[in-house]
């Protein structure tokens, strides 16, 4: 409990809050790593996932890559790229994108794959081109699963971004590694509290957005059909 009080005092100390090495700046860094890595993963993963989902080919690739990515130790990927690219942001960023990619890929792919075949056939019978089927039928219907995938990769990167500091980049992990080396438990605990708060806040925000988005969506097969006509 004593540590907790000290950690709280450390957090409230204005000297630790501002400046380029302050909690504020490090939190922003942490969030920007998360955003950039997730965005890159989306840029790569969504087109590939859509292509696989629409063509109904390459399913094994998605399943295998998501499975393999789960088995890979993140710390190993970060340190391996750290040795390859040297100290800095490149190594952790590449590692985070690799981490985020499988969930986005699986979300994009399974959203399209999950669209009932008769809905796609109906669209084709109405004279839609393959491109129109993808953009106007499959993509809107697959959106909830895609968002789920993006959500889990963002949360995963947010949780792992502390490791960036191990190979010399910034983020909230800085305080953890500095604290480990100098046996500064209050600082480590304070930074941990901020990271945990950030992660839980992000999870709750995603949950809220998800609920609000779902409220407007029709459900069931009848709803599926009407939402296709509506778009």
């Amino acid at each position: 409990m004593n540590y907790l009080v000290q950690a709280w005092q450390w957090l409230l100390d204005p000297a630790n809050a501002s400046g380029p090495n302050g909690i504020g700046a490090r939190t922003l860094e942490h969030l920007s790593y998360t955003l950039v890595a997730t965005a890159i993963a989306c840029l790569v993963g969504i087109p590939v996932g859509y292509a696989i989902g629409h063509a109904h080919r390459g399913r094994t690739v998605v399943v295998a890559s998501t499975g393999a990515a789960r088995a890979l130790p993140t710390l190993g990927v970060v340190t391996l790229f750290g040795l390859a690219f040297g100290i800095g942001l490149t190594a952790p960023m590449v590692a985070f994108v690799l981490l985020a990619l499988p969930s986005v890929l699986a979300g994009a792919y399974s959203g399209i794959e999950g669209v009932p075949a008769d809905v796609v056939d109906a669209a084709r019978a109405m004279g839609m081109t393959e491109w129109q089927i993808l953009v106007r039928v499959e993509v809107p219907l697959g959106l909830p699963l895609l968002l789920g995938g993006i959500r889990s990769s963002a949360l995963q990167v947010l949780a792992t971004a502390t490791l960036a500091a191990y190979v010399g980049a910034g983020g909230l992990g800085r305080f953890l590694f500095l604290g480990l080396k100098t046996q500064n438990y209050p600082m480590m605990l304070a930074a941990s509290i901020v990271v945990v708060g950030l992660a839980i806040g992000a999870e709750l925000t995603f949950e809220l957005v998800d609920r609000l988005a779902r409220r407007g969506l029709p459900t069931g097969r009848a709803g599926l059909a009407s939402s296709v006509v509506g778009t």
Partner: peptide, 21 residues
């Protein structure tokens, strides 16, 4: 299930540090 999701969202390194305390 919500509590489990929140618990799972906690980053591992901070948890390894906080838990012993």
């Amino acid at each position: 299930l919500l509590a489990a999701a929140l618990l799972y969202a906690i980053p591992s390194l901070p948890l390894f540090i906080v838990l012993p305390l």
